[in-house]
């Protein structure tokens, strides 16, 4: 593993994208920053501009209007290397909204997803555990 990747794993800056969620998942992401969970211990930070992001946290069920933007963001605006984490039941399988007329396609048919974190919403502990799995996956540890 090269140095850049190693540093990336030590300081993943996350940007979070919601594609039509119930915003509970988004709140649990914010919750991870707060004193009880404090993901800054692992060097993670929530950044304000897409250009600064290494990890995209995608929540929500793939609303038509926002999926166009998400695709564009992923393809054009995020500096690579970048990983995508799907958070919540919605991002995995569209959950309850699978029959909705406005959520026609699952998330991973538009952008590649590296890790899914199940739960509706996943607890902050689960999100942290998921990110640790992601790190291990990139490191090649099973």
């Amino acid at each position: 593993m090269n140095l850049t990747l190693k540093a990336l794993l030590k300081s993943p800056w996350v940007f979070h994208l919601s594609t039509g969620s119930c915003n509970n998942c988004d709140i649990e992401i914010l919750d991870c920053l707060t004193p009880r969970f404090d993901i800054e211990r692992f060097g993670m930070r929530l950044v304000g501009s897409i250009r600064h992001a290494d990890v995209l946290l995608v929540t929500g069920s793939g609303n038509r209007k926002s999926m166009l933007r998400v695709k564009k963001i992923y393809e054009e605006q995020v500096p690579k290397p970048c990983v995508v984490v799907g958070i919540g039941e919605c991002a995995m399988s569209r959950g309850m909204f699978i029959h909705s007329y406005n959520c026609p396609r699952p998330l991973d048919s538009d952008i590649p997803v590296d890790v899914y974190i199940p739960g509706c919403p996943p607890k902050p502990e689960a999100i942290i555990a998921g990110v640790v799995k992601l790190i291990n996956k990139i490191k090649g540890i099973e």
Partner: peptide, 29 residues
């Protein structure tokens, strides 16, 4: 419109009891 999931329509697909769960997912807060 970036968040529209058609909840009202979904709720009409479910029975009265199931609807409660869908309605709960309108908003997490």
């Amino acid at each position: 419109g970036y968040n529209h999931r058609g909840i009202e329509k979904l709720s009409e697909r479910c029975n009265f009891d199931q609807s409660t769960f869908v309605i709960e997912r309108i908003c997490g807060i």
